[in-house]
Design a protein around this nucleic acid. Sequence first.
DNA 1: CAATAACCGAGACGGTACGTCTTGTCTTGCG
DNA 2: CGCAAGACAAGACGTACCGTCTCGGTTATTG
Lengths: 209, 209, 209, 209
Amino acid sequence: MTPADQTPREDPSTITSQPRPATTGTRATSGRRSEAARLAVLNAADDLLVEHGFEALTIEGIAAAAGVAKQTIYRWWKSKVDILFDNLVLDAETALAWPEPADLRAYVHRYARFLAEQPAGQVLLALLGHAQLDRRTAELLHDGFLDGLRARDVTQVRELLGLDEEAAAVLLDALLAPLYHRVLVLRRPLDTDFVTAVLDTTLDQHLPR
Amino acid sequence: MTPADQTPREDPSTITSQPRPATTGTRATSGRRSEAARLAVLNAADDLLVEHGFEALTIEGIAAAAGVAKQTIYRWWKSKVDILFDNLVLDAETALAWPEPADLRAYVHRYARFLAEQPAGQVLLALLGHAQLDRRTAELLHDGFLDGLRARDVTQVRELLGLDEEAAAVLLDALLAPLYHRVLVLRRPLDTDFVTAVLDTTLDQHLPR
Amino acid sequence: MTPADQTPREDPSTITSQPRPATTGTRATSGRRSEAARLAVLNAADDLLVEHGFEALTIEGIAAAAGVAKQTIYRWWKSKVDILFDNLVLDAETALAWPEPADLRAYVHRYARFLAEQPAGQVLLALLGHAQLDRRTAELLHDGFLDGLRARDVTQVRELLGLDEEAAAVLLDALLAPLYHRVLVLRRPLDTDFVTAVLDTTLDQHLPR
Amino acid sequence: MTPADQTPREDPSTITSQPRPATTGTRATSGRRSEAARLAVLNAADDLLVEHGFEALTIEGIAAAAGVAKQTIYRWWKSKVDILFDNLVLDAETALAWPEPADLRAYVHRYARFLAEQPAGQVLLALLGHAQLDRRTAELLHDGFLDGLRARDVTQVRELLGLDEEAAAVLLDALLAPLYHRVLVLRRPLDTDFVTAVLDTTLDQHLPR
DNA sequence: CAATAACCGAGACGGTACGTCTTGTCTTGCG
DNA sequence: CGCAAGACAAGACGTACCGTCTCGGTTATTG
């Protein structure tokens, strides 16, 4: 196992992660990995992606912006995709958490806001785009994030509405497909009215009173 | 206007195109553009995309495979995206034609096959992916292809079902969103059963008997 | 034969070279090699070597100083050694020419001045040093320069003094060995008195009156 | 004074050295320097130099081959040159010792064998080569080895042949210059016949009976 | 007989330079 | 003039070592 594989990538069936060893606090410079460097890289990559886009994002640029040596990046990540992926997993954990108490309509609205407005949403869209162009990215994104996210959501919907797995998956897809379609294909804004309309139409149809 | 802009890019409101000047046949060696070189480039780009993917597609590789000088490509296209776009417009014209007589269910099935199986569908998915990463690609793809395609389809649906423009657009999106979602996000096969289920569910809902 | 081999490296038995195609004058940028770039690289390498030494001489530094892209250097030379070698061959042609009329004592004095004072002598000493560390450099330097130089000098000595080849070679080595020993090993100045003493001692011994 | 300066480097006027503190034997891991680590580094450097050459010799490679941490090397040596230098001083002490009873012809033959065949001779030639490229190496080699060696030999020749210092130095240089010239410049073998010829010619000339 | 001080291995860190690759521009010479 | 050919400046790629820096884990004297 090469060092680049040691980046903690948790169980794909969940998106909870990072039991980071609770470093002392600031500069954990030693024989072990520097938390400061890790965070600097993740943040620099995020900032540069939002500011200049995926194409203009380079390892050299990230290294320079993070004040880190290029080799420090290559030691822990294989590519800029891996860096963005780590960012995605990190941020999605909170940004895509289910509301308490569980509420499907609120969750879909939160999902829409995540896709349309939040930096981590930008990261997901960029990775989804790149996944169309690169098999490795597609596998990483699905095995490491999307599949686990969907499994979690299907379970939630099942418990919430008392559906079987098949029906819950169909309902979830029916709710999310218009969202993804609107941002990925139509490139139109995911305003609240649209999400509400999707919810009304779809829930009426799947959950007749 | 630079030479690269001279590539005939027809009215965005339609996807019909290429009244190519019916070149003599073989080697159009003269003061005017070589049809042989143009086709060699388009075909080489298509082949290389299907064979090695978008990332591995380079201008130099296309030039080499087409037996054409690099500058000949740069004279007529701005980027590999433009080459693929030309291919897309060329092929989609027939692959996404409405059946005669007009039939919505047949058209959606054809659309699904286009996305899932045909080379031009691969091109569209690659360009859609790249459009998430590059604003210029997004604009070209929408202004030059997707918007016109959608306008045409909305009109067809209106005429076919007697709906107003708003309703026709909503119906069209409801039919296509699951398709795009399934290939772009879920990466699952677009089998006939799935398309039929989408059609049944959606048409029931939107067109109550 | 790769481009890097095309650098004209003439017959090893002679050190005359460079029938450069007498370029038009200024910027010969075209499908053919740029004379301006070639000279800029050679001069930059020479300057940087004299100023900062062999160790500090880098391809990137030469490229920057010459205002040339790194790849332009790699296209025509394999390494900084090759660049210095070209410089050596170029300059030695005149700096180590035999005087007219041929005069052994004058030639040895000229040789000493070449080794001790001239930039091209610095280049030769650097390459001789590097040849101790790198087999490839050793072969290049001997096959491409030293062997030819020695063959030429042996012939001159034969014709001049009427010796057979063996005797001429022994005499030449006896004259040059103290020079090289003094600069390479003793690191002491090659002053005129020393060279004269070597000539007196050695010629007395080899050419008894 | 930094630790790196603590490497015992004896009086330059002599090449005798190493009153090493007679360590316990095997693993002297404690507050004081580990003799095992020191020897492992010296031997690894020697082996790697002979096997792969000076250029391919790296601190990291030596550390790995010696089973030693990089920092352990940097604690005691400044560079790979310093390591090789220590090896040279260590080995030359015996390899270049004067025969008993003192015999000039035998010593020159021994010198030739040292240069041509022995590992320590390889080290000297490599350092001599590097000294042409690096001022620091030149100073270390002369101040720490060559000058002391020459002083010792001049003294020996004086005592042996009853010459004054000037004449003894000239004779010594006359004997050694052809040897160094032959290996450094001509790259030809230092066979016994050649050395004998040098001795016959030079001694005849300098010591006429 | 603990405390302490220096060495040791391990290896992450910020860097420099490497040699390769592709981009997009340019110029020549042929047809 | 279009075109094949290919050199050019620019700059990102991923790799190899550099020299510096903690980190823990050993001894061996010291207090």
